[in-house]
Design a protein around this nucleic acid. Structure first.
Lengths: 207, 207
DNA sequence: CCTCTTTAATCGACCGAGTCCAGTTATTGT
DNA sequence: ACAATAACTGGACTCGGTCGATTAAAGAGG
């Protein structure tokens, strides 16, 4: 049964996003209330929270789509590649998987909002969730499938950090910035090389 | 005139922290309200915000003390050391500068609170502020004193990430965990080596 | 056509964090 | 005694977020 039972949607995520982005450009992020967004969109306040679990979601939900592709991209890597190289390329492919056109509005317009500090933590919370994914990937590849070693978690969090730096640099580059991929590669390469080197010089797994 | 004019303090940061930590252990972080804290401490709610700018401050303000030592530790490094090595050792010394005894309550008791997710973002926001400090340090040492290059900001954010991973691993290690320093060194070493390598192989500065 | 079920949307009450300000209290300096 | 100063208090307010009950709009089945 793919039939659509029940009352059909009268509003949509996109409607609310459009209204919200307009207001963000006018009044900034902190200067815009959820009530204002819903008023401009012509829905009730409660409806907003039917589509977004938080005010910051309207900003980062596009980014979540990109992040959701990461596990698949990781799984698709060549198992014979060095761990860190595989992870790096998986991140790059995940970033380019939705094309340079429909890039999250959040990133491209970050500079116009101004409330960087307020948004930063909400974004980082999302990114930090991916640290576990990366950490498990590295641990599995390294072979110590017990609890992740410090080097695995450190590499994961460091990678997240490098991704943030790359995204910020890319977002800060005024038009016409190119693809995000090269920024990611440049930011990740030194880190990955160093970690890979450390992994290779580790004592072989005991089994 | 170093005399203390005006009404003397009837309460203190420590009083409020003590009350708060008790309640955190009893009801968790999210399960404790600011009002409860102030009631247990015997002060008015407004007083809390005279000492802390946010509820999460009561948790991380000790960590801020450690972070505050970072600029000084960076400045005290040997200018002839490789950049990344200098930064790494500065971080380690900053972490040990207040001794293994009076370590932030936040870190040692993190596992008992449970609301990891809620606290993580507030902690990361603090750490992220230090990224700028690190980035400027690296940029200055590298010599390109214009805007920080991508590799500098990437290295900074990655370092922050590694520090977070080290702190989490250290906090998660049940008693008796040793010093934080070794954890930091282990987490930072691969990253620093890789970035240093990349810096050394950069084209010499143009001047 | 009527009813049942499902789902979207609404309404209203509520809570907690954080801000603000006006007023009180306790202390030191003159 | 009086002014200046600073800690503390109280209350009102805003906003984000939650919750539960209710209404509205469809399709399904008799």
């Amino acid at each position: 049964m793919t039939t659509t039972r029940g009352r059909p949607h009268a509003s949509s995520r996109e409607m609310l996003q459009e209204a919200a982005f307009d207001l963000f450009l006018e009044n900034g992020y902190a200067g815009t209330t959820v009530t204002q967004i819903t008023q401009r969109a012509g829905v009730s306040r409660a409806t907003f929270f039917n589509y977004f679990s938080a005010k910051s979601d309207v900003f980062w939900i596009d980014l979540d789509d990109v992040l959701a592709r990461l596990p698949h991209a990781l799984a698709a890597t060549d198992a014979r590649d060095p761990v860190m190289h595989a992870m790096c390329s998986a991140i790059v492919t995940a970033s380019t998987s939705l094309g340079p056109a429909n890039v999250p509005w959040a990133l491209t317009h970050l500079s116009m909002i101004g409330d960087i500090g307020e948004l930063q933590s909400s974004a980082m919370a999302r990114l930090a969730c991916q640290a576990r994914t990366l950490s498990e990937f590295i641990t599995r590849r390294i072979g110590r499938d017990s609890e992740p070693a410090l080097i695995a978690t450190a590499a994961s969090f460091a990678t997240i950090g490098a991704v943030i730096a790359a995204a910020q640099a890319w977002a800060g580059a005024s038009t016409k910035r190119g693809e995000l991929g090269p920024y990611l590669s440049a930011a990740l390469a030194p880190l990955c090389a160093g970690v890979q080197n450390a992994i290779d010089s580790m004592p072989p797994r005991k089994l």
